[in-house]
């Protein structure tokens, strides 16, 4: 926490190069202030409002809201959906990032754009297209009805809508990292005889794991919080097809504001927990955080391509 001032104090002539990567003190303070004000006003205050509302009727209301059977059913459903959606999007994201960041091919920009597209599609539309496809009057509706299969207003529909909405999250994160790093090490590994999977797990994955981990965190959080699309395909059956965000809406509509915000703050805690987990993993990996160290002592990642070859 004291690195910046102490570093400024011990600048020796030999550290000129390190000095080249910092700004004058006042610039640093100004930028930190801007960032803190921005995040404070736009994020911290609304969050504080959620917690304030959650506890305004006391902790008893808070725990009762979460222990309620309907709330527990909603939490179970949301966890199930997330456990299905995130691995699917992770597998897709790794494949897409590899193809896009490491190869040049016709239609590459188009492919990236199509992967981004679910962001731009309104969640309302995202829910609607699955109704158009699987609803009783949809394209596949009659076929499904004939086999007594339910997609929408049941778990599969919620999973599909959530997968659609969170589609780009994992894929998008590692691409800039991979592009910035270049492919030299991977090429070296292959030239030295590593198989594709060896190269991927020993060279590529360690380099993109934080980008990937961040993508997974985003995907998880978004999957748990999705409201609009799921609302269209869920059917809102209490205790059966209500996810946590839908349950929040129900409580709010029943004028149980404290309970609504109590359940909402669960999602907030999930987000904070994933962040803590990320920091712990980062620490455990004992990869020196390049940011945390003065540049002079920065350690190069231990990549010795030769060591790969058995």
């Amino acid at each position: 926490m004291t690195a910046a001032p102490s570093r400024a104090a011990v600048v020796a002539p030999a550290d000129r190069a390190a000095d080249a990567r910092t700004e004058p003190r006042w610039v640093q303070v100004a930028l930190i202030t801007v960032a803190a004000l921005f995040l404070g006003a736009f994020v911290a205050l609304p969050v504080a409002a959620v917690l304030h509302q959650a506890f305004r009727d006391g902790a008893g209301v808070f725990t009762a809201a979460i222990a309620d059977p309907a709330a527990r059913a909603a939490i179970r459903l949301t966890l199930t959906v997330t456990l299905i959606v995130v691995p699917l999007n992770l597998a897709f994201g790794v494949a897409a990032a590899w193809a896009i960041a490491r190869f040049r091919f016709r239609g590459r920009a188009l492919l990236i754009t199509l992967i981004d597209l679910p962001f731009a599609v309104s969640p309302v539309i995202a829910g609607m297209i699955f109704v158009l496809l699987f609803g009783a009057h949809g394209v596949l509706g009659p076929t499904l009805a004939a086999h007594d299969l339910k997609i929408i207003f049941a778990l599969p529909g919620i999973v599909l809508a959530t997968t659609f909405v969170t589609f780009p999250f994992v894929a998008r994160e590692p691409i800039p990292v991979m592009e910035a790093q270049g492919a030299d090490e991977e090429e070296a590994a292959v030239v030295l005889g590593a198989t594709g999977w060896q190269m991927f797990f020993r060279v590529t994955l360690p380099k993109i794991k934080w980008g990937l981990a961040y993508g997974v965190i985003l995907c998880t959080a978004r999957a748990m919080g999705e409201f609009g699309a799921v609302s269209v395909v869920s059917g809102h059956i209490r205790g059966r097809t209500n996810t946590v965000p839908l349950h929040v809406e129900i409580l709010y509509n029943e004028y149980q504001y404290a309970a609504a915000f109590a359940v909402a703050s669960l999602l907030l805690l999930v987000a904070l927990a994933t962040l803590v987990a990320r920091r712990l993993i980062e620490h455990r990996a004992s990869r020196p955080d390049p940011v945390a160290l003065p540049t002079a002592t920065r350690v190069e990642p231990p990549h010795v391509p030769g060591a790969l070859v058995p």
């Binding site: 339910k150 997609i151 599969p156």
Partner: peptide, 14 residues
């Protein structure tokens, strides 16, 4: 995963 996905298709229409 596959089992979870396939198991996810519920048919409780009846």
């Amino acid at each position: 995963l596959l089992a979870v996905v396939l198991g996810g298709c519920d048919s409780e229409g009846g």
